[in-house]
């Protein structure tokens, strides 16, 4: 039998093998589901049924609840739009707006710093020797390949099924 393991089959033999495999697989009976499966499913169903309506997904809410949330969301959206429109005129909002303005200035300053650092790195790369850059790239590729190799070993050894 071992000398046939590497036997090359002609198309007729391949078709016969396909028929035999097909027959063998279709003759397989259904596998027995574990007995605990039914109790697990029924337990999940009971837990889901025992939840109050507001803990279920929105699609399962009663109609009044759904309409209430839709109206509330519409009002909130309208309120935000109105507040955004009228905010500059509201005296009580001035401290908040000035704080937001300060944050915006801070963000601009941080972006300037990032831009300056980026320019510094670009200038450094332009002035570095080409072979230094090639060496760094080679090291990065080597590190990636090493990770791939270690992952393969891990996959084969740790996760291989018996």
């Amino acid at each position: 039998m071992s000398n046939l393991k590497h036997c090359r089959m002609n198309p007729e033999q391949q078709q016969r093998l396909e028929r035999e495999i097909d027959r063998a697989l279709k003759a397989l009976p259904e596998m027995q589901a574990p007995e605990r499966l039914l109790s697990r499913v029924m337990a999940r169903i009971e837990v889901a049924a025992a939840r109050p309506w507001y803990q279920r997904s929105w699609s399962e809410w009663p109609a009044p609840g759904k309409w209430t949330t839709l109206v509330a969301l519409a009002l909130i959206f309208a309120g935000v739009c109105f507040a955004w429109w009228k905010a500059p005129e509201a005296q009580f909002l001035q401290p908040v707006l000035s704080r937001l303005h300060a944050l915006t200035n801070l963000a601009d300053a941080l972006w300037s710093v990032v831009g300056a650092l980026g320019g510094l790195i670009t200038a450094a790369l332009r002035n570095l020797n080409t072979w230094v850059l090639v060496g760094c790239a080679a090291m990065a590729i080597f590190g990636y390949v090493l990770c791939v190799g270690l992952g393969t070993v891990y996959f084969r050894v740790a996760l291989a099924r018996r």
Binding site: E30, Q32, A33, L37, M42, I45
Partner: peptide, 14 residues
Amino acid sequence: FEAFMKNYQNMVFS
């Protein structure tokens, strides 16, 4: 549903 599941659980599990 229990009866339904008993009818089909082997097929689904297989």
